[in-house]
Design a protein around this nucleic acid. Structure first.
Lengths: 192, 192, 192, 192
DNA sequence: TTCTAATCGAGACGGTACGTCGCGTCTTTAA
DNA sequence: TTAAAGACGCGACGTACCGTCTCGATTAGAA
């Protein structure tokens, strides 16, 4: 019924993911076809369909491998510094052609509830949890407002970065992160 | 060369937009086909292609008509109150099934630079400008930190709403807006 | 539901039939694919599937057009001479590369009851009937044994020609027809 | 190079042939796949490909075993009686579902010269030779027209049986054989 | 008010890609 | 070494839509 994982060809698996990511970078996910991926990977279409339900699932796996630990959270004891480091990494990623398939994936998820779910569970939640954990430590240390809900804080900090990337107003950047952190921590209320 | 606008059938125009929006709400933009739109609208395919370059353009027009003045900015003199009002409207829209095609459109734009451009110019920029104008007035009145770049402020306030909608963590809501405004204006720095 | 015959492209119809027949002659029906036919005819696959249920149906129509009136029965008043003429025509056809698809069709019909039926009704029966009509006239004129069942006679005369063609023992030929007629009319019983 | 016959599994060999024949009877040769045969026989595909070049070769072997000595020629000294016996056997076979794969095989051979050759050499020729031998004896005894070419006689007698089977006009039968022999021996020329 | 040219609904067309089936080969594990 | 099992690269299947292209049949503006 379901295929035997032991007999799976690792060579083909990697070739498929790499081909999918490359094509996705060149033309976007929408214009990338399973046939092209198969051809570029030197693989039969069936081998793709045997192990993934769709091209988006392939790209999801590719993104997951690519992201790896790149967005891990540091803990130097200084929250602001750590946020600056990590968020600058996120901003770089979201403006990098290497990670363009990531934005395509978020795009595709808008019309694909299953993809949305696996994307949320597999890519977003783990990283949000890590962020929340780091914030919790800082909050306990008095480096963060005690009455702030940590999910709200995560949204406040990362929302603006994704906003730029997804609405294409301007690319996210480390400079944005600096200003963003300054504003978010100081608050918009004018100094009296 | 280009078709004669005077002879255009308004009945068909509306039927097409309504069919496109309805199908988009039912199945998402990706699964909606031009043929379906034509059939549901009781229209020939050619009539769609004569007036729009693609199905996304139809949906874009539909969104534009639907949005109308719903997200206009009030000016009661009280910035925080006005933001609360307007942002709550945005949050409602972004969580409403009626506006689901709007998210689909942002999704499609990730792989379609032309759509991204016209979407940005036609839908996003005018509203961002209106927001910036309102913020400028408030800043001049001393209701907003003087050293805050207004584009950054817009991102800080709207980023978190779009973040929830597009990453599907949880739906945007007026309650989010309240907390968001509280945090953003007060700042994350703990009260000493 | 079913396509509109008035709007059918005659150019495409002919190109498809000609391509199918040509490929069938070159490689046999079994190795001929719908995709090849479409490509050679400069036509979309759907156009084939719109008007025919299968490639064999295309070839059937091609054979029908090709056969035309080539196997019509003459009536000079001399049964033996007429049979010689007409059967020689049949023998030529069954050994001609031009008509190779005809044998392929009979082959395919062995595993396809629907094809067998339409082949029988469309190609075989009309010709058998014509043969029987000619034989009936001759029988009434005393040129053919009065107690012979005409269907049996048809089988006796044409069976050996098809036998050679389908079992590939040796190709049918006018010479075969001569000898066949001699034997069949004189009978196998030795002259006392 | 070629596999070792001594180590061959007789159990598998028989299971494969039986599965192939059964499937061929149920669905025809064209719709029978090697994968189905392997599955039904409880055998790996490779085991089929190791010992046969194609599914038709398996069926050919199956037919050969099935036919066995069923169509052997008797020699009671009475040609007509012997022909009646043997031809009735052939007619029974050609109208029996058990032997349906035989007709499928002839069908497949129309587009497969290699199959045609091995079919002709392995199945047809030996039986034609046996028939010719029996006819030769009879001819020498004066039971058959002396000036009749024996290959022509074989075609005259067996052609009509195959004709019915392959063109699907009506099934061959012992009754057909009776009438056939009557006509062929008496001749079609009216009695003066 | 009639003429006439553009737009309309309809849908056939040449294509591209889909997701599936089966081919014949190859690789792994067990007997 | 042969066997069962089944993954693999490949090619074709029949289908769904694409965007273009005819077709009459309206239908509204200019004559």
């Amino acid at each position: 019924m379901s295929p035997n994982l032991d007999r799976r060809s690792e060579r083909s698996r990697q070739a498929i993911i790499e081909a999918a990511m490359a094509l996705c970078r060149e033309q976007g996910l929408a214009r990338t076809t399973v046939e092209e991926i198969a051809k570029r990977a030197g693989v039969g279409k069936q081998t793709i369909y045997r192990w993934w339900p769709s091209k988006t699932a392939v790209v999801e796996e590719g993104i997951n491998e690519l992201a790896g630990t790149a967005t891990d959270f540091p803990d130097t004891g200084d929250l602001l510094a750590d946020l600056r480091t990590q968020m600058a990494g996120v901003a770089s990623i979201l403006s990098s052609p290497l990670f363009a398939p990531y934005l395509s994936l978020i795009g595709a998820a808008q019309d694909d509830p299953e993809l949305a779910k696996s994307f949320l569970d597999g890519l977003v939640k783990p990283r949000v949890n890590a962020a929340r954990d780091r914030l919790k430590v800082a909050q306990d240390q008095g480096q963060l407002r005690a009455d702030a809900d940590l999910d709200d804080v995560v949204e406040l900090l990362y929302g603006p970065i994704y906003y730029r990337a997804l609405l294409r107003t301007r690319p996210p950047s480390p400079a944005q992160v600096d200003e963003l952190l300054r504003l978010a921590f100081a608050g918009l209320t004018p100094i009296r």
